[in-house]
Design a protein around this nucleic acid. Structure first.
Lengths: 116, 116
DNA sequence: TTCTTATATTTGGATATGCGCATATAGTAT
DNA sequence: ATACTATATGCGCATATCCAAATATAAGAA
């Protein structure tokens, strides 16, 4: 039950639900998420850590960047269904659409002036 | 998203998860729940209120008693699936089994000396 | 009416959570 | 080594959450 409580706690915050929705599109690094959501680096990193600690996302270091993802490897036994529910239940929300738009714009900018 | 956050908040507490598990067995009044879980009346009432406010359970007044239930009437669009997941994910936990045992004992006693 | 019972709510205190600021860490490059 | 970048973390503050104790409300009985 402790684990389940931890998972529901991780999900009971709009910042983190938005993150999950972004990560369901594709793997993203912290800097992409903070641009997409227009939030501080601290806030992005903290909340990604909470999701990771709850076993809902995983991370992968690639040089300076840490890429977060919902899709890779084995998580806890609840992960799959939780992810499907979030995908189904959070679709047309304005803020979700805005996040996606900002993500695309951020990607464009970083391609024009790549940081890698 | 606000509603979903509220639902996950309601679920992110072991007291309330235990309550849902008890109510999945059958409709129960507050006094039965506080006996089954061995908690105070304040705690029982308050947490039942949170679950109700999140649209996860309903109540029905019958004289002095207020009966809570997971099964009656229309809730929010998430209620059905959430309930199925809790049922599936929370099964063999010790505390859940103890709650059920205490519930049966409380029922026995109140049948010997009924309050209705 | 008053009395009793079942439930809800208010109050206050301890603990938890979310955030920004500043700083620390990890990795790359020179 | 230093400098730079991406990410993580320690700290403090404001707010939220959880609880018990006391009180309030609601319904029935006398």
């Amino acid at each position: 039950m402790r684990e389940l409580v931890k998972i529901f706690k991780a999900l009971s915050d709009s910042t983190r639900l938005r993150m999950i929705k972004l990560l369901q599109q594709r793997e993203l690094c912290v800097c992409e998420i903070m641009q997409a959501m227009n939030i501080s680096q601290t806030r992005a990193s903290r909340n990604l850590g909470i999701l990771k600690n709850a076993g809902l996302i995983s991370d992968r270091r690639d040089g300076l960047w840490v890429h977060y993802s919902t899709s890779r490897q084995k998580f806890n036994e609840y992960h799959q269904e939780i992810n499907a529910l979030i995908k189904k239940w959070l679709r047309d929300e304005d803020i979700i659409i805005e996040d996606s738009k900002r993500l695309k714009k951020a990607v464009k900018l970083s391609k024009a002036k790549p940081h890698k």
